Each structure stands twice: as C-alpha cells, then as structure tokens.
Amino acid sequence: MSDTLFGPDNLPYGLFSTPDRPGHRRLGVRYGDDVLDLGAAADAFGSAHAEVLRAPSLNPLLAAGRPVWQAVRSQVRSWLTEEAHRETAARHLLPLSGVQLHLPFEVADYVDFYASEHHATNVGRIFRPDSDALTPNWKHLPIGYHGRAGTVVVSGTPVVRPQGQRKPPQETAPVFGPSQRLDIEAEVGFVVGTPSQQGRPVALADFREHVFGVTLVNDWSARDIQAWEYVPLGPFLGKSFATSVSPWITPLDALDAARVAPPSRDFPLLPYLDDAADGIEPGGYDLRITVELNGHVIAEPPFSGMYWTAAQQLAHLTVNGASLRTGDLYASGTVSGPEKGQRGCLLELTWGGNEPLELPDGKRTFLEDGDEVTLRAWAPGPDGTRIGLGEVTGRVLPNA
C-alpha cells in the first residue's frame, strides 16, 4: 500500500451503498481501491464504537469527539494492517468500483471564506484597476459569508446552469436568463465535529478539538449574477445554487506531516487571531491541488500559501459567540498562488474573460454546457508517502 494515495496513513471516511441494497447507506473507509464496511467490521471485531460506525451518516462519529475519532482511526488501521486481523477485515472490503458514494455527512451550516492573498489581489485588480487591490480590512480579519447548506452536493452530481438577473455593461437595465459567466473555485473545506456553546468563542488552540477533517470543495460561481447582486451585502444567488464536495473526508490526523507555517503577516494580529503566540501549532497545510477542465490540467494551486489558516477562520467565525454545530462546513475560499498557472478559478485564469484559455477542445473564458471540472489534491505524508484527498467532479448541464 506504500504506492497508493489512500494507504494506511490516510484512511478517509465516506458513505456508500451497494447495488443490491441501494437504500441502505453505510459508513466506509477508503483503503486503496477498496472500501471497508465500517459497521460490519466493527461488529466483527467487537468494537466499543460499533454503534456510531453502524450509522447511515458520518454525523454520529463527528459528534463523538476527538478521543473517539482517534480511537476509531487506530482500530481501523489495526484491522487493515495487522496480520492477525487481515483475514477478518478482508471479508468486509468491497471494490470501490462497485459501490455508490453519497454525501458523507449532513451539512448543518456552510461558510465560505476569502483567504488567499493572491486570489483577493487578482480579483481586486480585475474589478478595481484604479483602486487598492485589497480592501482595508483584508489583512486584519478573515473575510467570509454564509452560504446555503442545502445545496452542498457530493462529487458527481450534475450542476444545472443557474439563471438570474444580470446587467451586461451595454444595457441600462438588468436582464434575466441563464448565467453567461459560470465559473469554478478550487477550495479546501473543513468539517466540524464537536459543537460549541453559544456565547463561547473557539480559541485557536482548540481547532483540533472541533474540526474532524478536510475535504475538497468546488464553489461554483455565476460571476455575472454575482456582479449585479453583491453590492451592498455580498454573494447570494451567484453562489447558492451548488457547492460540490468530495465523498471522502480526510481526518486531520492524517495530515500531520503536511503542516506548515503560514506566510508572514504584514500587520500585527489581534490576540484571538495571533497564531505566532506561544503554544499555537503551525496552522497551514501543504496541499497540492490540480484543476482539470474536460480532462486537461488548467491550474495547480498551492494551499500552503493561504494567508489565513483554518484555525484562524474558525476562531473568527465564533469570536462573536456564534456556536458550532456538528456537520458545519467552512471553506477556504479560492486557492491561488503567485503564478498564472496557480490561479484557482477561471475569472483569474482568463483575467475577467479577456484572456481565453487555449485548450485542445477549444478556447474557454467561462464554462460551457457539457464541460466537466475535476479537482484533485494530495499532501505529503509520513516517511515520503502521499496522502490523497478524494476528487471532486461536476458536469455543467444546460438550464432547460
């Protein structure tokens, strides 16, 4: 298993069903090209955590807290790698190609951030060429907005081209119809397990007590709808029609070898965001993302350069006393790097549609009906291994 992105150092969690029992959803752990039926394995091995592992959703395990997360992960690794357990475990391994994957957890709330300095700077230069690229608050707090949890969908779910109001530059009044500037955003999402009490902020040091794991996110964006609606309250219909996530949630503990320090900050941070303080672990993650359009690689954004970390985002999300719920999902915002080939959305890659991408199947500024976008990622693991994040794929369907 040393040559796979999904070996014993990874063990991401998902939800699956089989053709013979399509309505029976079960928790699984990906191991190479197989899926371990967690509930069945837990019963076979007499696990003390069998009840939460038999659940038809990841939420009961998420809510159980970090000590249980660590205990279950240790058990699963033992079942799959120790010689005494392999024969029993093998009876509960199913080929990945033969199962149907589902949204692995019930999404409670969804928040999207804007944490890449390179992305924010590019967007500012595109839309405000005669003003400062970054707004005055950008380097003092992680900017974000509340999205729509009910339209978070699992990888493979088709995305219908959204429609709404848009105002082309040459028009004096808005028009209505399908978006003409449909885009993607390559992001990393963080899944909350342990809830928090309303009125009590979550400190930076408590990040790992509340966040269970990581998933890839494609935050589909209708740029023309967004441009007309976002003043003065920000994104709404241009974002809420679909957000795609991976069917696999990689535990934070699988990414310990990928932890890195974030970029240096230009301004002193307020104490609740100060991750240079004593006792605060490095909050960045070295994740290498690849963006494909119709099978062609168009960008490779590096997550290690994100200005704001997931721990800072969680601290800011709760600093006003807002409570966390099991199943909350918050995303990083578009991941972009300093080079053109590292930009995580078409808005940046084509510089607002003015510099079309030259692809083997034709030019692209924004997405066309039938286009398929896939996000993949990996991170350094222990002893030279690689940890894979489950891919996210979505195909654009026309608005009927």
Score class of each variant (00 low, 15 high):
270 L>K: 11
264 S>T: 12
282 P>S: 09
143 I>R: 07
36 L>E: 04
268 P>E: 11
145 Y>T: 05
206 D>M: 08
380 P>Y: 11
63 A>V: 13
309 T>C: 10
4 T>D: 15
372 E>P: 00
312 Q>F: 05
384 G>H: 13
386 R>Y: 08
264 S>W: 06
3 D>H: 15
30 R>L: 09
333 G>H: 02
62 L>C: 09
359 L>C: 12
89 A>K: 10
373 V>Y: 06
365 T>E: 09
60 P>E: 10
221 S>N: 15
121 T>M: 00
64 A>G: 10
54 R>Q: 14
25 R>F: 05
360 P>N: 13
393 T>N: 08
287 L>S: 03
98 G>F: 07
94 L>N: 04
183 D>N: 08
375 L>D: 01
158 P>I: 01
288 R>G: 02
179 S>V: 11
305 G>P: 03
400 A>T: 15
134 L>R: 00
342 Q>I: 13
79 W>M: 09
226 Q>V: 02
16 F>E: 02
198 Q>E: 15
222 A>V: 07
80 L>C: 13
257 A>W: 07
333 G>R: 03
182 L>H: 11
382 P>G: 07
40 A>G: 11
85 H>W: 12
368 E>V: 06
23 G>Y: 00
256 D>C: 03
159 V>K: 01
178 P>R: 09
168 P>R: 14
387 I>H: 03
196 S>T: 12
127 F>H: 14
100 Q>L: 04
347 L>K: 01
22 P>M: 08
350 T>E: 06
316 H>Q: 14
266 D>E: 14
339 E>R: 15
72 V>T: 12
33 D>L: 12
315 A>F: 04
24 H>P: 00
392 V>K: 02
98 G>L: 05
314 L>N: 05
337 G>E: 06
14 G>E: 05
357 L>H: 11
71 A>I: 12
80 L>H: 09
13 Y>E: 01
121 T>F: 00
115 A>I: 02
66 R>E: 15
331 A>N: 03
237 L>Q: 09
116 S>L: 03
143 I>Q: 11
318 T>H: 08
387 I>E: 05
3 D>V: 12
229 E>C: 06
123 V>E: 09
271 P>Y: 07
345 C>I: 03
86 R>W: 07
168 P>I: 06
146 H>C: 06
224 D>W: 04
360 P>E: 08
101 L>H: 00
215 T>I: 14
283 G>E: 05
